[in-house]
């Protein structure tokens, strides 16, 4: 369980995140939403330990996150970053095997190889296992990285998954497939998932809890259908929307109703 209280992050005199509180529980998906520059990625980078908070409290599994040994943390929680760079031209299977490194000492075991195969199958990339990673398309690279992250916490008990914009570059089917995998992990394996999402309809459909940020401050935090109101979305995104009910799932369906013209084209 991730608990953060009054989390604040500053660079110099700029405050990127101010007094943000919330928690991510096992078995649930917490979606972090907000406009560009609202501090979503900053929050995720604080939770993943990339950045040290300037203030506030950050607990993981009952203890301060900073006290966790790196290796122990790596077997409990995995992080999918927003941007990926891979300096070496690994094959896809070699990339996914990197996710198993926290689990084996010298050589990977048969179990590690089985997890790699299963993780690749879970993201639908088994047929590209031997392709060189740089030759994949953007969306396939994103899925290969997801497979690496899944392989890392494959057998973890009550593990945690931090996903920073995991749907970038994915087609519609794979956007849903990725979130379905996350939901399966939460429902069936007791994982906690924290995901930065842009698409409010996807958040409405998959998230249990939503934290909405605006300019580094929380707008709302709570169960998805309570947070996704016309007022909150207008505050958070500066956009007029109508809410309908999803015809099959019943969750809110957000339909933007933007004003006629927003740009003054004359000088």
């Amino acid at each position: 369980m991730f608990e953060f209280t009054n989390l604040t992050y500053k660079i110099g005199s700029k405050t990127l995140l101010q007094q943000v509180s919330g928690c991510a529980r096992p078995g649930e998906i917490l979606a972090v939403v907000g406009a560009n520059g609202a501090g979503k990625s900053t929050l995720l980078r604080l939770l993943s330990g990339d950045l040290k908070p300037s203030g506030g409290e950050l607990l993981f599994g009952g203890g301060p996150l900073a006290k966790w040994p790196l290796a122990g943390l790596a077997r409990r929680r995995a992080v999918l970053a927003q941007q990926h760079s891979l300096a070496l031209a690994f094959e896809v299977r070699e990339l996914v095997l990197l996710g198993r490194y926290p689990h084996f000492g010298g050589q990977p075991t048969a179990h590690d190889h089985a997890v790699v195969a299963a993780a690749l199958a879970a993201v639908g990339l088994a047929h590209l296992a031997e392709r060189s990673y740089p030759t994949l398309s953007g969306g396939e690279q994103q899925r290969a990285q997801l497979a690496r992250v899944l392989a890392q916490v494959w057998e973890a008990e009550a593990g945690f998954l931090l996903l920073d914009e995991p749907l970038t570059g994915l087609d519609l089917r794979h956007q849903h497939h990725t979130l379905e995998v996350a939901r399966d992990l939460a429902r069936q394996r007791g994982f906690g998932v924290i995901a930065v999402l842009h698409d409010l309809n996807l958040a409405a459909q998959y998230a249990d809890q939503i934290l909405m940020l605006r300019q580094g401050r929380p707008v709302a935090c709570g169960p998805a259908n309570e947070v996704l109101t016309c007022e909150n979305i207008h505050t958070g995104f500066g956009l007029e929307v109508e809410l309908l009910a999803h015809p099959r799932l019943g969750c809110p369906l957000i339909v933007p109703c933007p004003r006629q013209s927003t740009v003054a084209w004359t000088l």
Binding site: R45, S48, G49, D50, L70, A71, G72, L73, A74, R75, A78, V79, A81, H84, S85, L86, A87, L88, F90, L98, G99, Y101, P102, Q152
Partner: peptide
């Protein structure tokens, strides 16, 4: 060194000091 190929932050997420 293989982990480092992912970048420093990602390598740290995989337990590398």
């Amino acid at each position: 060194l293989n982990l480092l190929a992912l970048g420093e932050d990602q390598a740290a997420h995989l337990g590398l000091p």
